[in-house]
């Protein structure tokens, strides 16, 4: 059969397209490989950069949820629990007992309150105090040093309590090993 020009041209087109496909496919595979290469996972995967993309759906959702939180806080009708003396009930959190007692009191942001660390062992009961101070969203107890040996070796039971004009409360008991 006589091969007409049009068919020859379309065969040429297909050949060219085929070559292009191979080239682009090969290139894309190369790019894909390079971008997915896992070198040092810790430090090289996410190089310092600035993401100028728009806010993601998650980010928008979280912004919206923040408004709900604001509304909820504004509507707060449930008063905080009160102690018998009418102060706000708070529970100090002990974060460390090594060398010094570190604790903080959430739910209150004020200066001048008293943090008391009370140590009990058998008949012994010792206590030391420090002053509370403001830290962003809570009251920080200044550290209470216990490295000077005033606690005899053994296992002591520690309770940290907080008292100010507006709030009071105690932590749960926690054991402290003294060598």
């Amino acid at each position: 059969m006589k091969i007409r020009n049009k068919k020859t041209t379309s065969r040429k087109k297909l050949a060219i397209a085929g070559a292009l496909v191979i080239l682009v496919a090969g290139g894309s595979v190369a790019v894909w490989e390079l971008s997915n290469r896992d070198s040092d996972p810790a430090s090289t995967e996410r190089k310092p950069t600035i993401n100028y993309g728009p806010a993601t759906d998650t980010e928008k959702k979280e912004a919206d949820a923040n408004k709900d939180r604001i509304v909820k806080e504004q509507e707060q009708n449930n008063p905080s629990p009160e102690t018998p003396s009418g102060k706000k009930a708070v529970t100090p959190t002990i974060t460390s007992t090594t060398g010094s007692i570190k604790a903080y009191v959430s739910g209150i942001f004020e200066e001048g309150g008293t943090c008391t660390a009370t140590f009990s062992k058998g008949d012994s009961k010792l206590s030391r105090t420090s002053v509370g101070f403001q830290n962003v969203s809570y009251t920080q107890c200044a550290p209470i040093d216990i490295s000077d040996g005033f606690l005899s070796p053994g296992t002591w039971s520690l309770v940290v309590s907080y008292s100010s004009a507006t709030a009071e409360g105690s932590s749960g008991a926690q054991s402290v090993e003294v060598n």
Binding site: A55, K60, I70, S106, G107, F109, V136, S137
Partner: peptide, 28 residues
């Protein structure tokens, strides 16, 4: 959420970094 909020409220500026805002009490 001040960075991505497209209709932020005044209170979000007022306490933008949560400074002076305890968890269960009014902000200072």
């Amino acid at each position: 959420s001040l960075i991505t909020d497209d209709w932020p409220w005044a209170i979000q500026y007022r306490s933008a970094t949560g400074y002076g805002c305890p968890d269960t009490a009014a902000c200072d």
